[in-house]
Design a protein around this nucleic acid. Structure first.
Length: 99
DNA sequence: CTAATGACATTTG
DNA sequence: ACAAATGCCATTA
């Protein structure tokens, strides 16, 4: 029996480079509305490079937060081709990955 | 087992 | 449109 967090990692690891998703989508994909619980799992993130937790943003493409710092998260996204301005993802609708 | 917390989202002011 | 308050779920103390 896998914990809720592992479930998040499973779906999140499906997100390819240059693409982002939201906490709500992940929770919805798991059949739950615990957006916050998803964030907790991301913060722990035991599967560092395997699970691209930095590709998870809030609704509307808002970056929200990051364990290593929001700046680091934005930097990684930009490095993957996702443009971020003012802590928000540009072209969010285009980079958004629906689960 | 109960209480408190958090990388959110939605509803009010 | 922005800021603050409330509600939600799972995890941790």
């Amino acid at each position: 029996m896998k914990s809720f967090s592992e479930r998040c990692y499973e779906v999140l690891r499906k997100v390819p480079t240059g693409r982002v998703t939201t906490y709500g989508e992940i929770a919805r994909a798991l059949g739950s509305k615990g957006f916050r619980a998803v964030g907790m799992a991301m913060n722990r993130n035991p599967y560092a490079p395997e699970v691209p937790c930095h590709r998870v943003v809030g609704v509307g493409g808002k970056i929200g937060g990051f364990a290593s710092g929001v700046d680091e998260k934005i930097r990684m996204l930009k490095s993957e081709g996702v443009d971020v301005v003012e802590g928000k993802v540009v072209n969010f609708d285009k980079v958004f990955m629906e689960l």
